[in-house]
Write a protein that binds this DNA or RNA. Structure first.
Lengths: 337, 337
DNA sequence: TTGTAAGCGTTATCAT
DNA sequence: ATGATAACGCTTACAA
């Protein structure tokens, strides 16, 4: 048996389909008597409004999308969780789109999402500045967009990021105050906010303490384990090897530790380490890792709440929200020998 | 300016809307001449068919859903990645639904998905046997369903799982052949296939080698870190402490290692450890952990391919696919002292 | 092979 | 406050 329609409900309640629709959406007031009859009919027929018809008619859907560079990165997973939470709570479905940081794939996805008429999208863009034609197009077509973790320069959209600069600055200060003078950093790419800002925070901490900025101690990577491994490799092979490492992402930590282990170095005796992000294994590692914990879940929550506000038509100036982080001191740092 | 419709295209190409639709779907052959005109018109108008209208008309969508108990579990994430991969390749969108292993939430989600008319869903059910009314209902309404990691007993749906029993059996055999006689196991709940089968594999290995099954060495948990921690705590406090531990999930490994560390025990000198799953940190842990690696991504790939086959109407007997695992020997096991 | 026209199940306009 | 009716943009009988 096929499912009931508004028409069936209308007949059963002896009212018009318009009235049924009205009680369904509470769009305008209806007589209590009729209202009751409709409600009863709905229950009796186990009527559920057809979403597809509604979508077509209103030219909108109740789904949002999260466009993410790497779904397997624990950082993003935790964000997804936050997004999913509020989406569910608000009756929205969540589409997850993995771009592998490939602009082409991102564009394909955004195009698809536009076709699907998603109500809005949270995106960690593959490119902060150039083109981004599809996203721009989506924006033009009136779609709500918020950028997460990275920024969207030319477009004027809301953004949600961690307090990268300050967090990085204090983490490195912590190392300096422990007595370290040569601190290596595995930084992210300079063309994305997180990479750039964390590197700047690192440099600022050095400046704050009157320490020199040594370019050979700064390794730019793409926050990938394999690249980080090579970077740390280089750092450890330096004639005047750093006594401490600031690894500016959790993903990079994986590769970095591999390199440290391969060199037969013991943490923290031979080298101190602070990592950005607090993946679940950081606290059980030997030794437990001192880290800068981002409020990952909150990033997702804030982003989706912002997004929903836009979807609902709130008119407020474009804003960029910065979430604080927390320096968790564990056992991977000691004064240099 | 609003976007073009089939009608616009039809006018421009001087054909009927039916013809436009035909070239769009390749449903029946159309004259080459007209075909060309339509294609041209489509390009000129930058026409993109309205998905919402199409959905309503065909009463179907090109989205599939993955209903998962815990999106933050690395195991599921990796599966998601596999699912996303084939979904994207095949032009499907992927909805991700996190149930927290809460049957109520699962039901809400499945109901929502039914309303949204998703083409199919891959589910790791909260309950393998009881009720599962919503899923059953979805099935009745003709939706394609495949169960992943866990089974769906009463319903006849395809399933994809790892070779739990055999893998577990060989992993434990490995420990026994190393000389261990008292091996503790942190098992999952017995009412889910992975928990039950891995425990059975463990027992079988003991039987194979003529060893006794000691109930006090078997700890049932929910594969959660905190629970596993307590379980291992109990194991380590046993008067005759086990010399080796078989931790039957990656998530449980987190808590288990915490307990081991707290007891000041060194791996593998004081105690040997094998874990099920190969989270990315297992290979850089000190010492690198010997583990049973599941083909997580493949689980997702196989499940979605199975699902798409069903969606496309393939008629084949219901099947349960078992994927092999791989025992990766690293450095967390040595003969007992 | 092509065109006409009838829906799909809603919401929304316009009278009443 | 309510009801008749026209869309929304597409696919698909059915006719030609």
């Amino acid at each position: 048996m096929k499912s009931a329609t508004v028409k069936d409900v209308a007949e059963r309640a002896r009212v018009s389909v318009a009235t049924v629709s009205r009680v369904l959406n509470g769009s305008s007031s209806v007589d209590a008597e009729l209202q009751a009859r409709v409600v009863a009919a709905i229950a009796e027929l186990q009527f559920r409004p057809n979403r597809l018809a509604r979508n077509l008619r209103t030219n909108s859907t109740k789904t949002i999308a999260f466009v993410v560079p790497d779904i397997e990165n624990p950082f993003f997973i935790s964000v997804v969780r936050g997004v999913e939470e509020v989406a569910f709570r608000e009756g929205y479905s969540l589409l997850v789109c993995n771009t592998h940081d490939d602009i082409k794939r991102e564009n394909q996805y955004v195009e698809l999402l536009t076709d699907e008429a998603v109500a809005g999208l949270i995106i960690c863009p593959t490119d902060e500045r150039r083109g981004h034609t599809q996203v721009q197009q989506a924006l033009n077509s009136g779609m709500a967009v918020v950028a997460l973790d990275r920024r969207l320069e030319d477009a004027s959209v809301d953004g949600v990021l961690s307090e990268n600069f300050g967090s990085s600055r204090s983490a490195v200060s912590y190392l300096i105050e422990l007595g370290h003078r040569r601190i290596g950093i595995v930084a992210g790419p300079d063309h994305f906010a997180p990479g750039r800002e964390r590197r700047q925070g690192y440099e600022q901490a050095l400046i704050d303490h009157g320490l020199p900025i040594d370019r050979e101690l700064i390794k730019l990577t793409h926050f990938r384990a394999s690249e980080a491994e090579g970077a740390v490799e280089g750092l450890l092979n330096l004639p005047d090897r750093p006594t401490a490492l600031f690894i500016s992402s959790g993903n990079a930590a994986l590769g970095s530790l591999r390199a440290v282990n391969r060199h037969g170095l013991t943490i923290p005796d031979d080298i101190s380490i602070v990592i950005f992000d607090d993946p679940d294994w950081a606290s059980i590692y030997n030794p437990p890792l001192t880290c800068v914990a981002q409020k990952t879940r909150d990033l997702g929550v804030v982003a989706s709440e912002l997004l929903l506000r836009r979807i609902r038509g709130h008119e407020e100036p474009v804003q960029e929200r910065r979430l604080p982080t927390r320096l968790i001191i564990r056992e991977s740092c000691v004064p240099p020998r």
